[in-house]
Write a protein that binds this DNA or RNA. Sequence first.
RNA 1: GCCCUCGUAGCUCAAUGGACAGAGCACCGGACUUCUAAUCCGAUGGUUGUGGGUUCGACUCCCACCGAGGGCGCCA
Length: 587
Amino acid sequence: MFELEQKQVEEKIHAYCRQQGLPVIEIKWTWIPFNGQWGISTSFFQLAAASFGEKKGNVAARASEIAENLAGSLAKLPAFEKIEAVKGYLNLYFSTSAYFQQVLNSVLEEQDKFGHGERLHQRVMVEFSHPNTHKAFHVGHLRSAFLGDVLARILDAAGYEVIRANYPGDIGLHVIKWLWNYLKFHKGEKPDADITRWMGSIYAEAVRRLEQDPALEDEIREMYNRWDRRDPEVVACWKETRQWSLDGFNAMYNLLGIHFDRYYFNSMFEVPGKEMVEELLQKGIADDERPENGAVVVKIDEKLGLKEEKYRVMVVLRSDGTALYATEDLALARQKFLDYPDLQKSFYVVDVRQSLHFQQVFKTLELAGYEWATRCQHLPYELVNLPGNVVMASREGTVVLLEDLIREATDRALTVVQEKNRELSAEKQLEIARAVGIGAIRFPMLARESNKVVTFDWESALDFNGQAAPYIQYAYVRANSIMRKIGDRIPPDLAPTYELTQPEITLVDLISRMPDEIQKAARDLRPLIITNQAYELARAFNDFYTQCPVLSAGEPARSVRLRLVAASRQAIANSLAILGITAPQAM
RNA sequence: GCCCUCGUAGCUCAAUGGACAGAGCACCGGACUUCUAAUCCGAUGGUUGUGGGUUCGACUCCCACCGAGGGCGCCA
């Protein structure tokens, strides 16, 4: 938000460097790290070290000297209230009243666009979630869904045109097993409610039956053959039951606040994938080892002339000529660029275990001469495990179903809402409980580095205190409550003519950082940056709330603070929006 | 055997290569005639796995080791 001011100072520093015969280097700004102080800072250690060249010297002392000199020559800049040199750092403190006013004005003018970047007119795609039909949807699946959703929101806020893509696994061995069990033991059944759970149970039952009697594998093979022959009964059953899953997923996505612009289905890429393998063979990139009882493979390291193994060998077609996941991924990647030739980036939010697989796919496409291959990028994330490092797997039955988690979280929130908001209708209460419960589920999936394993346990999943979504939502509600008391009429623009207190300065400081934080989150593809920002903002607001009376304050503080409350409410709302967390009107 | 990721307070996690490594939970002690206490304030808690190296400066980068997890031609 302070590009202009920064530029001015940078020019002065550069002029000083030239005058002193120092190298002109890029100035890196940081926020002043001291609480309650508002401004920007840069250090001169690098410059001091450079000034000595090959010789040794006291860098700290030299840096202090440079900072002191600059502080002296910059002393008259009107943009800053105070300029000081401390231990080799140059600290520039904003003139609070002017910027305080400027920040609030931007927020209140831009409203829900505050913090967002200029439209870049660049298109990117984020593929995420990719659930398997005919299986349960469990908590382990949430990470990709939330990560992808929020990355899409972040990129959109940063200024990109974002395509949200889903790639459901609607065919494959798991579906065949399901169809077999259904047609043999459950033909004609269809539950009225809770369909995703039921789909999962039919699958789990199929797995159990096959474990108990391995001879049944023959029947699975037969079912696969029927599918390959496009047996009308099997195809019809597949179409119908596949839709049940998709309907169930849609209901869940709606509840979770996730939507997609584009669906690619696994079943659409079997044939095109095989065609691409044929093409790879013709180009001499793939090797057909089927005559020697092998498969069709791409020996990537060999083709690249690498001495050490890196990409290894990727199987692109089974020895019996049937398609693999890899086969289909080749065609999927291509389809995305056929649909959107101007795609700058094609992101895949898929768990870390598939890192090598995606490196292989993208490198193979590059070898095949597709120039867009380098625009594909896998965004890996670690798994959600159960305590004791137990992986969630539908087959093992070690899962926490999403429906159960949502119900528990919502119930717990509802208990509090009913106690605290007796005057609200049951419908309103449930709406709030949903926002709080689902927000509480979302937050911890986003508030940690994606390369760290998340351990799910009920106790912390249902803990609404501290660093959690309800804390942030509550800050929003408090701000909203104050504004409601004055009919939401925000006082007109005015400058603070009283001495601002520390909580007020900290709060506006954090609000002013939001545009930068959003850009940083988009650049690094890290939702964590936004969760941190949102939490800090909420904390600063709660601090302000307890220390600074608003409605009972005398003018001009009352009006200034009302504007600050309105701006805080907006900033918190915008942070929550990027995180896909609903900001309730009451709690 | 090769490759990838992680290791920070009792627990869960933060910290653009820069100022005293910060939060939450738990535990202990306080605060509701005042805008919603799902809140706030205070106290306790650290040789950042170990050993080297690079740098003016390392939780951060490099190397080795230890510990945990994951991946390596026909699963997805």
